[in-house]
Design a binder for these strands. Sequence first.
DNA 1: AATGAATGAGCGTTCATTCAT
DNA 2: TATGAATGAACGCTCATTCAT
Lengths: 208, 208, 208, 208
Amino acid sequence: MSTKNKANDPKDLSFTEKARRAQIVQCAIETIAEVGYAQASIGQIAKRANVSKGVITYHFASKDDLLEEVVAAYAIAAEAFIRPVVANAVGPKERLRKYMEANLAFIAEHRKMVFAVVEIAAGMRTKEGKLRFSADADESIYQPIEEILYAGAEAGCFRAFTPLSARVTALAIRHAIDGFSLELMRTPDLSVKEYMEELISIFERAVK
Amino acid sequence: MSTKNKANDPKDLSFTEKARRAQIVQCAIETIAEVGYAQASIGQIAKRANVSKGVITYHFASKDDLLEEVVAAYAIAAEAFIRPVVANAVGPKERLRKYMEANLAFIAEHRKMVFAVVEIAAGMRTKEGKLRFSADADESIYQPIEEILYAGAEAGCFRAFTPLSARVTALAIRHAIDGFSLELMRTPDLSVKEYMEELISIFERAVK
Amino acid sequence: MSTKNKANDPKDLSFTEKARRAQIVQCAIETIAEVGYAQASIGQIAKRANVSKGVITYHFASKDDLLEEVVAAYAIAAEAFIRPVVANAVGPKERLRKYMEANLAFIAEHRKMVFAVVEIAAGMRTKEGKLRFSADADESIYQPIEEILYAGAEAGCFRAFTPLSARVTALAIRHAIDGFSLELMRTPDLSVKEYMEELISIFERAVK
Amino acid sequence: MSTKNKANDPKDLSFTEKARRAQIVQCAIETIAEVGYAQASIGQIAKRANVSKGVITYHFASKDDLLEEVVAAYAIAAEAFIRPVVANAVGPKERLRKYMEANLAFIAEHRKMVFAVVEIAAGMRTKEGKLRFSADADESIYQPIEEILYAGAEAGCFRAFTPLSARVTALAIRHAIDGFSLELMRTPDLSVKEYMEELISIFERAVK
DNA sequence: AATGAATGAGCGTTCATTCAT
DNA sequence: TATGAATGAACGCTCATTCAT
């Protein structure tokens, strides 16, 4: 209604308000992707958006609020992109393949956003110096992979997995996927298709 | 001797000078590992070293100079730790195993230093916003792994590798190793031995 | 009618316009009384009034304009409350008593408004840094008291007063009255009746 | 030693450091006295001191820290000025007179400092909007006066006092003294001597 | 060799004000 | 009438860097 806490409930936001926020989020993503988390000041972001700094603090309660919205936008987009692909896969082996394919394709198609989120996750800290995005990662990130591994072991198409080996394998897969984002930044004209096939092939061997 | 650019040639440095620099580098590592790249100000580092801020800018031309020394110290230490282990390994398979073992062991034993370097590599940028440590990575980082892979293929103990598949495999191995550092930060009491065996087992399958 | 300077002449204002202004003035009083002059932003006041910030700058030419209206509202209310009481008093002694009674009663009954005005008077400055409300105080504030003192001296019920002693006595009385507002803020459940009697008794002795 | 918390213990401060702080405190006093609490920004104070803003945040942990030092400097100076005068007075009547004389003389001689402290006390708030300097006032401010009044009543040279009448009398005396500071600001060439005699005479009557 | 003092640019944030709708 | 959007200046504060001693 009046002055603050715009984002209490996204449904409270007007259409134009949502559009403005989305635009600023996009500029934040591009700025972070280009100059990194540490250098991505509100001033820089505002400059890219061709608005005054005040606009950003008008639409977002704080810089952290904006960065959290970037991460939230990523989470929603990734979820919407990846989940249906994996859900439609038949059998553990295809599921693993599709999981990797979908993740790599998402990264390739949203590389700036992903890179920005990686930067935020690596750079954003609480007042006590702890990483803002990290601890909660375990369950939501690694569990889906582990589930596929266990299912494959049970179905006989993968090797047997102990809790530890499943976790380490999931970590290796996840880090390979996340590393793809870095490679894409370093080498923008990477052949996504080929890279994807190689990576899948590597981990198909690894779980057999 | 004069006023600036102490580090032109390390041999110009007196013994005490070198000790002072090493002490400051160590404090920088600890500070960065604890509070992250962005919050690790010269003031923070000086406080940890129980010296004045001026001492740091006296011994280092700039903050970037100090951070580069941290990275250099890491590179030297890692090199000294890993190279002989790998060099003494007989045959590609053992070489790959030793490479991974040595890397993981080094990370486990120097986790703060490694984490600091990861932070610096992720956060430090040139004035134009480009990552300071990344471009040169290819050759020095991935090449040794690729060499092992090619040697293994030639010897018949690994599968055949194309340039692409060798590169992607090297990336996956490297990212798995780097990811281990993150895991250690998240879970300090990780069983390094077990983790190591699992990771080696994964990539031994992957290259077969 | 046009765009600016709504308040040129109060008679130009429509009924609803006046009501709106009064409502905003009331919210300004409450905000200032609660958080103080410095923290009482237009945004805060608007939030309390459940309107947008724009409403305030629509109805008032500026923030200063609003604050001046607060002071004006106080002046009118105080005048309306105090003057008839004093006018109806018979003789200097009763007049002095009624003057103090009426002032203290007004403060007790309108403590938020009075406190807000005290805050404004203390905090509001011209662009050059001079106090906005102070210079004109002399005549309108101290003169009525001095008149009572002179009348009492002439009538023989008070002691003799020189211009200086009348002025200083008036100041002491006025500061004691103004200080009552501060005490009320500190100690909201002060016994107004008792305080009043004591204060009157003090100054009845002082002028005898 | 290193970076922060200069003021932990005043004895830790070097001579030059103390001098610098005193100079900045003095500039803060003058700035506040001239443009008021709200407009007295660090930038303004720095400008008056002909130094950069950074100097102030170098010597003081925060703006609040500086303002508290202003108040502390006032408290120490007032104490040193007033206490011995009162302590040397013989008998309640002389003690009351000396108390007022010393207070008024101190205000007259340190008018800017006193006015600055009045501004700070009126303007400085906690994060919750409560006045920063006020609650603790009771005991340290009013008690000395009340003690004199009780002593005078017991000695028979003053009238009898109830707790309430003593408190209200103390308040009236204190507000008259504080009000003197405002009068001095309004009328800088006030005759302090005469004003003082009148005020003393008023309250000597009031307590008889 | 080391320090403390100072600087100046930049940060995130607040806020009175303007203005199109 | 009223609003939400936007602006731009100022704020307190941090920090890498410079420099006299």
